[in-house]
């Protein structure tokens, strides 16, 4: 009998503190290749820290991050650089480079890390922009000239342009109106399906979580308290999940003021 493949991405006993604040307290979580996992949870429970440890932006104090069964957080810088080439990330704020035009933002990795010629990179950037339904006329504008929804779409184009194996979505619909948020959700689902990649998202937006997630995990107090299929969210039977999805102030989760 053959051994099952390792998860595409795994957090194994990950701990992270900032001075006296213990954010992650031994997080164990994994995502299979080609699946879309959404992490939900109240504010301040460590959702952003969770994906930033996986994206290599924050080093865990203890525990391991593994891609395809290979430990990455303690790997040498060359290995980590090679691994970071396999991931893409859409930031909550868009995080577009405001000194660069839209196409230069999208082509940033192609030009600066992959050594693609500017002309070819521009063509690929325009193609990626078309995939998120932004026309060629936006390519030479600057981020400040676009609306919030358009900036998110540019961020998405930048995340997918080099065909990553893993994509992280940090609060993809925060700050958007419901219609734009639904459009972003649809684009995320389509891009993840087209690329066949593994996706990990964090969000407060339950409509978004249900649309983009195959599975949902609930993070509370630095640990996963529930995990299941997106379709099972309403019948989880977990008091944390019930309180969160029903938006009640009474329950095991204390409101963060």
């Amino acid at each position: 009998m053959s051994t099952p493949p390792p998860p595409k991405l795994e957090w194994r006993g990950v701990r992270k503190s900032f001075e006296d604040a213990h954010v992650l307290r031994g997080l164990d979580l994994s995502v299979a290749a080609g699946r879309s996992l959404v992490i939900i949870g109240a504010s301040g429970q460590g959702k952003s820290v969770t994906i930033k440890t996986a994206a290599g932006l924050i080093l865990p104090d203890a525990g391991e991050i593994l891609y395809d069964g290979e430990i990455v957080d303690t790997a040498d810088s060359r290995t980590r650089a090679a691994l970071s080439g396999r991931l893409g990330m859409l930031f909550q704020s868009g995080a577009l480079f405001d000194s660069l035009s839209i196409w230069e933002n999208v082509a940033f990795r192609l030009i600066n890390a992959d050594g693609v010629a500017r002309k070819t990179a521009k063509a690929r950037a325009i193609e990626a922009l078309a995939r998120v339904r932004l026309g060629r006329q936006y390519a030479d504008l600057y981020p400040s000239e676009l609306s919030g929804g358009m900036q998110k779409r540019v961020g998405l184009a930048r995340a997918v342009v080099s065909n990553p194996e893993i994509i992280f979505f940090d609060e993809p619909t925060t700050g958007l109106d419901p219609i734009t948020a639904a459009a972003i959700n649809d684009l995320i689902v389509q891009q993840v399906r087209d690329l066949g990649c593994t996706a990990v998202s964090i969000t407060h937006d339950l409509a978004s979580a249900r649309t983009i997630g195959d599975e949902i995990a609930m993070l509370h107090d630095g640990r996963i308290v529930w995990r299941g299929q997106a379709a099972d969210l309403d019948r989880s039977g977990d008091p944390y999940v019930d309180q969160f999805i029903n938006g009640r102030s009474d329950g095991p989760i204390a409101a963060a003021f």
Partner: peptide, 15 residues
């Protein structure tokens, strides 16, 4: 750039 996560974005873009 740090405050608006552009530095983080740069790192995730292998730069």
């Amino acid at each position: 750039m740090r405050a608006t996560e552009q530095i983080d974005a740069m790192q995730t873009l292998s730069t």
